[in-house]
Amino acid sequence: MKKRKIELAVISDVHLGTYGCHADELMTYLNSIQPKKLVLNGDIIDIWQFKKRYFPPSHLKVLKKIIGMASKGTEVFYITGNHDEMLRKFAYTSMGNFKIANKLVLNLDGKKAWIFHGDVFDVSIQNAKWLAKLGGYGYDLLILINSFVNWCLTKLGREKYSLSKKIKNSVKGAIKYINDFEETAGDLAIENNYDYVICGHIHQPKKELYENKHGKTMYLNSGDWVENLTALEYSFKRWKIYQYNHDKLSPFFMDEDLKEMDMNELIASITDKNDIGDIEVQTSEEENPSSVDKQGLSQDTDGM
């Protein structure tokens, strides 16, 4: 299989070690790409729900694949999330091409991309971690039940159905939480002059230009590999949401944005690499975003 060469791929919320993880599909995706940089934006291994009796070979293959990509030259950044927060004690550890961080800034073609998981905005995690963990177990059980329901629907020749999406879309509180999450991420990015803000955590893939009275930024969310099976890809100075169930292994250049590019612009975007590769990991207190007051959200960004 010929691999697609891309500048950057971002995946999050894989939840290895849980029944809902689609490890085989993720392996298919990882085998189809050859990124210069791979960002694992939190909750890759679900340490909250880790059980020795359930970590199948397909989940282990994903870890081996990622390590293999790093050994072959791909820069891999593991950004910690809430389900793998135990790794935060190793933040800013570097092992060859494999690096662990709590947040990351990348310079992409002269534009600054701010990447973090996003659990810092979750008030339930900040104030009642036991409640968040209980919710995690409930979510995993719901996904397990949903898998059985979808198996039955497939046997009957009917379309698959997402119970969790139905619940999220029907509960006003869930919708408000997602909207507040995106608004807060966008406001902080604009305040700190970031061109892109890239999150995970809420399992909602999205690419949207966010604006307020102070400016604008591109909000991106990589989604998850439990329900949506999505990733973010950056190449040719363009962002794309890769959707496994729709795109399969379709090439990046089939993106509509690229079809509209002038040939000279396309050639220039491929050959002009002066800005690609400049990496900056936020460690100084001076670059930490200031707090904002958003209803229902935690503003302690220092732990990000």
Rank of each mutant, 00 (worst) to 15 (best):
M1D: 14
K2D: 12
K5W: 02
K5L: 08
L8N: 02
L8M: 03
V14W: 09
L16S: 13
G17S: 14
G17L: 14
G17D: 14
G17F: 12
G17H: 13
Y19H: 14
Y19M: 14
G20P: 11
A23D: 10
T28A: 03
Y29C: 04
L30W: 09
K36N: 06
N41D: 04
N41Y: 01
I44G: 02
D46E: 09
D46S: 11
Q49S: 12
K51G: 05
P56H: 11
K61W: 04
K61E: 14
I66N: 10
M69L: 15
A70R: 04
S71Q: 12
F77H: 02
F77K: 01
Y78E: 01
N82S: 02
D84W: 03
D84P: 03
L87A: 10
F90M: 05
A91E: 08
M95E: 08
M95H: 07
N97Y: 06
F98W: 07
K99L: 13
I100E: 07
K103N: 14
L104M: 13
N107Q: 07
D109A: 05
K112T: 10
W114R: 10
I115G: 09
S124R: 13
Q126W: 11
Q126L: 04
N127E: 15
A128H: 14
A128R: 15
L131Y: 07
L131C: 00
K133M: 03
D140F: 00
D140V: 01
D140N: 10
L142Y: 02
N146F: 01
S147H: 10
N150A: 12
W151P: 00
C152R: 07
C152W: 04
T154M: 04
G157K: 01
R158P: 00
E159S: 11
K160F: 01
K165L: 07
K168E: 08
G173Y: 02
G173S: 04
A174D: 05
A174P: 00
E183P: 06
D187M: 12
L188P: 06
A189M: 02
E191V: 00
V197H: 11
Q204T: 12
E208P: 01
G215P: 11
M218C: 04
Y219S: 09
L220S: 07
L220M: 07
N221G: 06
V226T: 03
E227I: 03
T230Y: 09
T230S: 08
A231N: 06
L232S: 03
S235W: 06
F236Q: 03
D247C: 06
K259P: 00
E260S: 13
N264S: 14
I267W: 10
S269T: 13
D272Y: 09
D272F: 08
N274E: 15
I276S: 08
G277D: 10
T283F: 12
E285T: 11
E285N: 08
N288C: 08
N288W: 02
V292N: 14
Q295F: 15
G296S: 13
D302K: 13
G303A: 12
